[in-house]
Design a protein around this nucleic acid. Structure first.
Length: 112
RNA sequence: CAGGCUGGUUGGGUGGUCGCGGCCCCGUGUUGCGGGGUCGAGGAAAGUCCGCACUCCAGAGAGCACGGCGUCGGAUAAUACCCGGGGCGGGGAAAUUUCUCUCUUUUUUGAGAGAAGUGAACCUGCCGGACAGGGCCACAGAAAACAGGUAGCCCCUCAGCCUAUGGGUUGGGAGGUGAUAGUGAAAAGGUGGUGUAAGAGACCACCGGUGUCCGUAGUAAUACGGGCGGCCUGGUAACCCCCGCCGGGAGCAAGGUCAAGCAGGGACGAAGUGGUCUGCGGACCAUCGGGAGGCAGCUCGUCUCCUUAUGCGCUUUCUGUUUAGAAAGCCAGUCCCGGGUAGGCUGCUCGAGCGGCGCGGCGACGCGCCAGCCAGAUAGAUGACCGCCCAAGCGCCUCGGCGCUGGACAGAAUGCGGCUUAUAGACCGGCCUGAGGC
RNA sequence: CGGGGCGUGGCUCAGACCGGUAGAGCGCACGGUUCGGGUCCGUGAGGCCCCCGGUUCAAAUCCGGGCGCCCCGA
């Protein structure tokens, strides 16, 4: 995922977390916030409950890899946040992909 | 061959498609985008237990306090922790010796179990001082540290009883003793003898320990042998302490630099003189004054640059018939200033580095030569999917294949050395013991 | 990067500085009191003192190392 489509600042994460709408799934949580920007951006987090640095990095890489092709078909001006949950580490890639696309549809983020 | 122990190396490989970060090159519509090339996690990157480099702060020197360390030699940039020794312990297989028990055999014997001893390689813990001083040593025990008595033993003495007049016995008192028994983790060298009323290093022999001197080996700690002396002083300093040595503090979120916003400070003068050009708005040059900077810090001098912008704003005071003007303050604006938050850049990876070869050393490590440059991210780059192969586990049978599962611990964040902890396996050695063969 | 604290019966904590007997409250079990329950009274079970080494005659305590949890500073 290209760097300009990423959430990078701590304040951005706080803003999305505080004012965004959240959608839950056993594998992950999606948080969405409407902004005035042209582009949509995505941030990825994995808390300490997932395990050590290896597990947390792997969770974030999987989430980024899943989001990469979906980014083109998402409505502009959205800041998204994906929060990993513990069962994500044992899930298959296709399973995770299905979960993410399902959440994006529920949040009504796809272009018409 | 069997068993035990131990050192080192490695930490899945390969190909395809898509994707991410750094650097270089090219193109372009140049804060960006596209294409190509190249590089891109570890042996522990981890824990942060030590030691350095580096940076900032503080600092004349010395001492005190506090903390750490403490056998010898070596290695190192440095280290209580690395390497090689020394001393005192602990663990350690096969084998074997002795004893006891059980079974067995006509006997010789054989087998098993248990206890004690000897016992390799190797692994592992500790290491100044207890005659400088203080504190503590529960329970038990007579006594726990300038030893000690209501057990026992012995002598003396007093009283009672018995008596064959030698004495015996019971109880009390004054002493001696530290041998015996018992307690305890520990009872003030051990064994044997002399000696004595009973005893005791009181004395003797041997042994053990300690101090000191000499010799041999060793750089040394120390070991071995011999002489002499006292025959000798419990443990605890990972309790205080004493002696010797070492230590300034903080840490890459160090530090440097650029710098929004907000807040703070300052200025918003005089509008001179001479000249040139002019499209009459003004512009430029020189000069006076003012300001900023450079010429090593100061003065002088000199050089360079700048010298503008206010508001039909508000309040008060003064002048004035009014329009208006002046001064002070406030507000807004513009410009400048220093400090500096968010944030950016830097520090940031060429280094006590890594690899190969050779030499020296038992080793830690050192020296020389060669070849190359080998991660620098910052919500933090190494990922996803697929094929084949090599190991591993499970199942099946025709014992060699087939099918399934499917990679251990774990992710750089300034760098390096050591330590500690986690770790599926694979490969290559070394040492010791036992059995057999030549 | 640096600093601090905690771990002891089922739960909340003492004991640790200065080593020798592990204790309190709540809870639990049994008995009594009551017609029965609660309250109250009495009795007493339950601990490898987080783990591994070391010092010591002796370690929950002293000294190393490890594990887990919590907190703080730049």
């Amino acid at each position: 995922m290209q760097h300009r489509f990423r959430l990078t600042r701590s304040t951005d994460f706080k803003r999305v977390r505080n004012y965004g709408k959240s959608f839950a799934h056993p594998l992950l949580v999606l948080v969405s916030l409407i902004t005035t920007d042209e582009t949509s951006r995505v941030g990825v987090t994995a808390g300490r409950t997932l395990g050590g640095a290896v597990q947390r990095n792997r969770a974030k890489r999987l989430l980024r890899e899943v989001m990469r092709p979906e980014l083109l078909s998402i409505k502009p001006g959205r800041d998204l946040m994906l929060i990993a949950r513990q069962p994500l580490l044992k899930a298959e890639f296709d399973e995770l992909k299905k979960a993410v696309t399902g959440l994006l549809r529920r949040a009504d983020l796809y272009k018409d």
